[in-house]
Each structure stands twice: as structure tokens, then as C-alpha cells.
Simulated assay, not measured.
Amino acid sequence: MIRYYIGLDKVSENPYDRTSNPDGIIQLGLPENRLCFVLIEKWMAKNLRDSIMGTDGGDLNILGIATYQPFDGLMELKAIANFKSQVVGRAVLFDSLQMVLTAGATPAVEILCFCLAGH
């Protein structure tokens, strides 16, 4: 058996859940964000044709979403900082200029490790 699948088996046997299993295992081995599947599906249903064809009359086209982006994430996506502040009742303020967006947990953990190690 490939060792990679041993970890997947352990996660499926003892998955983390904030309330029912806080000592469970958190899966960081798969690069997929299941939290936003519904949002992505809705966006694609609404914008896919226009984004590929570039017919929306704005910046939403394949060149706008398939080219190199800022290393710390798109400012449009960082607008979520304001939303997150609203969600927590402004008890915590999120500064979009202090945020780094990554394409999954693996690069986020890697960046965090480099920051903590002082590299």
C-alpha cells in the first residue's frame, strides 16, 4: 500500500469536527476547497460562458482570470476581509493589506513555516 493512502485512511477513520470530534485529524493533504463548492458552482453557472468568451463587457474574461496575478492574491478577493469583519460583528477587523491569499492549504502552511522560521 502506498503510504499516502495510509494518511487518507486515518483521516476517514477519525475526521476532525469542531463540536463532535475536536481531537480528530484535519485533512491537509488534498488541494481542494470543499467549503466553496456551492459558491463556485453558482458562479460558473452564471458567468462561465461570458468569462470564456469575454462577452460580459467588463474585465470578466479568460485573459483576466488566466494570467499571472499578484503574488499575495487579487484585491477583489481580498474584499472578503470586509465581509469576514461583518460576520464577526466587527469584533475583529481584517485588514486586506495584511492578507495573503493562497491556492490551498499547502502553500499557506509553507508560507507560514517560512515566516516562523525567519526565511
Rank of each mutant, 00 (worst) to 15 (best):
M1N: 06
M1C: 05
I2D: 15
Y4S: 12
Y4V: 10
Y4L: 12
I6D: 14
I6N: 10
G7V: 04
L8G: 02
D9R: 13
K10E: 13
K10M: 14
V11K: 03
V11W: 09
V11E: 07
V11F: 12
S12K: 15
E13W: 09
E13M: 11
E13G: 10
E13Y: 11
N14S: 07
Y16C: 07
Y16D: 06
Y16S: 06
Y16Q: 05
Y16W: 15
D17R: 01
D17G: 06
R18C: 06
S20N: 11
N21I: 05
P22L: 10
G24P: 06
G24F: 02
G24D: 09
I25A: 01
I26A: 07
L28S: 08
L28H: 03
L28T: 13
L28R: 10
L28W: 05
G29H: 01
L30A: 13
N33E: 05
L35W: 10
L35A: 13
C36V: 14
C36H: 14
C36G: 05
F37I: 12
V38L: 14
E41V: 06
E41S: 14
E41G: 13
K42D: 10
W43H: 09
M44T: 13
M44A: 15
A45P: 02
N47M: 04
L48H: 10
L48I: 09
R49Q: 12
R49Y: 13
R49L: 12
D50C: 02
S51Y: 07
I52A: 04
I52F: 11
M53K: 07
M53L: 15
G54W: 05
G54H: 03
T55N: 08
D56S: 15
G58R: 05
D59I: 09
D59M: 07
L60M: 08
L60G: 01
I62D: 02
L63S: 09
G64R: 02
I65V: 14
I65F: 15
A66W: 00
T67G: 11
Y68R: 09
Y68I: 11
Q69W: 02
Q69Y: 05
F71E: 12
F71A: 10
F71Q: 10
D72Q: 06
D72Y: 12
D72K: 08
G73Q: 00
L77H: 14
I80N: 10
I80H: 02
A81T: 03
F83L: 12
K84R: 12
K84C: 12
K84A: 13
S85M: 08
V88N: 15
G89C: 04
V92I: 15
F94G: 05
F94W: 15
S96K: 11
L97K: 14
L97V: 04
L97D: 15
Q98S: 13
M99F: 03
M99V: 02
M99Q: 07
V100S: 08
L101Y: 00
T102L: 00
T102D: 01
G104Q: 03
G104P: 01
G104F: 00
G104W: 02
G104E: 01
A105R: 03
A105D: 00
A105I: 12
A105P: 01
A105N: 06
A105G: 10
T106F: 00
A108W: 00
A108D: 01
E110A: 01
I111D: 05
I111N: 03
I111G: 03
C113G: 07
F114S: 05
F114H: 10
L116E: 08
A117P: 01
A117S: 13
A117K: 14
H119C: 07
